[in-house]
């Protein structure tokens, strides 16, 4: 049984230059899709079919892409859910958060709700798909992983812990056929009222001293930064010293 995997991609934004680029997490989603089904992967985008950035995804080795032609002000979720309902799909891969627009990260959740599928957030890898069930590794903080199994079909958002997207070949991207599909969408009414501006740098939290008396204020002003030299072990035997280190490691629960 061949899997039917769809990767949803968006137009990214380079964090420093601000130029449009292949979005990092979406690129990883395409990479994961290519790992699962190779060239049978279908890649879907809602937006402008003439956007040159889409060729960067195609340059990863995709023979074709599907673009649901829409204006920027249109809500992508209903169009996508309609599109995904038409076909028999096993796995939908997205990034965690888009690099443009609202970047709320809600698309996989809304699609899953609309389709009635489970959603798996922050996937680092899909290890195997067998008998209609996928073994998935989730990315946890500090490089840890959690193993989860989920029945097909499902939607997964791909974390930046997943394998990095392969280099995009320019000529391959040019040769790929981009299939533009007309679709009917609605304007995102809620978003019209929002005011958007360039991001201001967030104020740093100030260290406020809530002292009520002069003595407390004096103490706060003259206090040395806490934490002088810790325990120093000099004359103990090596065994005792190693034991002390090991006990501290156990106490901090870094040794399990």
């Amino acid at each position: 049984m061949s899997l039917n995997v769809v990767s949803l991609v968006s137009v990214g934004r380079h964090p420093q230059s601000g130029r449009a680029r292949r979005a990092d997490q979406d690129g990883r989603a395409v990479e994961l899709g290519l790992k699962l089904v190779a060239k049978a992967l279908s890649v879907v985008h809602v937006g402008d079919p003439d956007d040159p950035v889409l060729r960067q995804y195609a340059g990863m080795g995709l023979p074709s892409m599907t673009i649901l032609k829409q204006d920027k002000s249109i809500d992508a979720v209903p169009i996508l859910s309609q599109f995904l309902q038409q076909e028999k799909i096993d796995i939908v891969l997205t990034g965690v958060r888009a690099e443009s627009g609202e970047s709320s990260g809600m698309v996989p959740y809304l699609l899953a709700h609309a389709l009635g599928w489970p959603v798996v957030a922050r996937v680092a890898d899909i290890v195997s798909v067998k008998d209609g069930e996928a073994q998935v590794l989730l990315a946890l903080p500090r490089g840890q992983r959690r193993a989860v199994s989920v029945k097909l079909p499902f939607i997964a958002s791909v974390d930046h812990a997943a394998e990095i997207a392969r280099q995009s070949a320019f000529a391959l991207g040019l040769r790929a056929s981009i299939e533009s599909v007309e679709s009917v969408g609605e304007v995102d009414r809620i978003r019209v009222d929002w005011q958007e501006s360039v991001a201001k740098s967030r104020p740093k939290r100030l260290k406020t001293v809530k002292a009520k008396t002069a003595a407390e204020r004096f103490k706060a002003a003259t206090a040395k930064p806490e934490g002088g030299t810790g325990k120093v072990m000099k004359n103990e035997t090596p065994k005792e010293k190693a034991r002390a280190i090991f006990d501290l490691l156990l106490e901090e629960k870094v040794i399990r």
Binding site: E99, E102, S103, Q195, A199
Partner: peptide
């Protein structure tokens, strides 16, 4: 924050 942290959206 929106658009990959480059936008402030007031709503």
């Amino acid at each position: 924050r929106g658009a990959g942290g480059s936008l402030d959206i007031a709503r």
